[in-house]
Design a protein around this nucleic acid. Sequence first.
RNA 1: GUGGCCAUGGUGAAACGGUUAUCACGACAGUUUGUGGUACUGUCAUUACGGGUUCAAUUCCCGUUGGCCACCCCA
Length: 456
Amino acid sequence: MAHKQFMKKKPVPQNSLKDNEPLKKMTPKKSSKKPQLLRGMKDILPQEQPYWEYVQESAQQASRAYGYQRIEVPVLEEYQLFARTVGESSDIVSKEMYDFETPGGDHVALRPEFTAGICRAFIEHGMKNIPQPVKLWTDGPLFRYDRPQAGRYRQLHQVDWEIIGSHQPAIDAELISLGSHLLGDLGLEVMARVNSIGCRECRPAYIAVLKEYFKTHKKNLCEDCKNRLLKNPLRVLDCKEEACQAIAAEAPQIVDHLCEACREHFMKVLEYLDEGDVVYHLHPRLVRGLDYYSHTVFEFYLQKDQEEASPAALLGGGRYDYLIQDLGGPGETPAVGMAMGIERVILAIKEAGVPVAQPPTPDVFLAQIGETARKRALQLFEDLRQAEIAVAANISKNGLSDQLSLANKSQAKITLILGQKEMIDNTIIARDMENGSQETILQTKLIDFLKKQLKK
RNA sequence: GUGGCCAUGGUGAAACGGUUAUCACGACAGUUUGUGGUACUGUCAUUACGGGUUCAAUUCCCGUUGGCCACCCCA
């Protein structure tokens, strides 16, 4: 029923059929409007695939090397799952979520991030009963209804890692280290910003202090910040307005207001990071937009962007010690997680001119002339494939010129030519595409011949 | 959600009120039916969609859709 409202009925032109009018005029004008991508959606075309494979394969390799197990969670979850974790008041939930009612009356949402779904799975499958911490990774599409820009889409892709079940600061450092090394392996020069936003004990106290401070400067803050002061005072810290930045620069820093436990935890994290080769800066004004974070938070940027007022983070994450408990999971299940934006990483890779592997070219191209040869070619194609010779062909073509031209474009090293004549004496021609020299060989010897030629 | 710039074949561009919308790349079909990477010929756009102004609109105006940029926010 709901769809009725979208069916805006256009007045149907009542062009009456005049007696002498040629029928042609009556054929409905086909809609000239071409189908178009929905705003913020993107096709990932064949020529983009090498970049995606490069990033996804690197991520998979790194995840395995660091001992993560793959998990996949649904694109669709209960609306409440995100409202409870990401936060009802957060922008992601309050204005960027694709949510709707199912025909059965459930309020559901397209996932705007991974953590909530993975934590739901952790609880639902009793993962508290396997050795802790549980290290999980995944990747896939996420949906956020905001205004698109380059490197920002409504359907976006992330790689995500979660370590659930340990409060150990070494875990935070391990995760950050994975992020740093993966981005480095991808060929990007990055640096991390790291901060601690405290726990439920010390953060409220700090926020109170911060509020006091900003109130004394209220008249110099921008309009947005006056709002933020009420809603989420921490966000005033990373406002881009110069005036606000100046005020924020002098603001009390959270690191000076952490409770003893948080302070110790954070110091330990930094200590572990110092042991490794992670390039990081302590960034006392770094806060993150999701409500569930506590303690350690971090983001990675391109080194060349670090001077920018608002560099786009390639990867971000932090600790969320309360989330699982808040969802009704086993008490005391601290966790850390992070996610990497694939589109942004690819953008950065392109800008940096990092070379990515192109799809392999075929070893041989199989050309056929005539109907009997075509039938034989179909078999031969399969024989070659099973002999692990990468073979290309375009069986729909007839002319040899055409096929040679395609062979040339495919960059095959050898073209095999199978025609009437060869069919009669069971031979096949092998043409070297470099120098044009040809050799006629028995079909029975073909695979040996090719293996020798291709040094397989 | 706010503000700005933009929209011409598959791709990249030109024309910017006035005859059949120009060029390059590309794709497809050929150059007398068995030899590619050069050459030649042909085909491939009701100028995003809808409306308005005008004798005339790709060109001006409005709306819609989409892209980009700056916010908001985030990856």
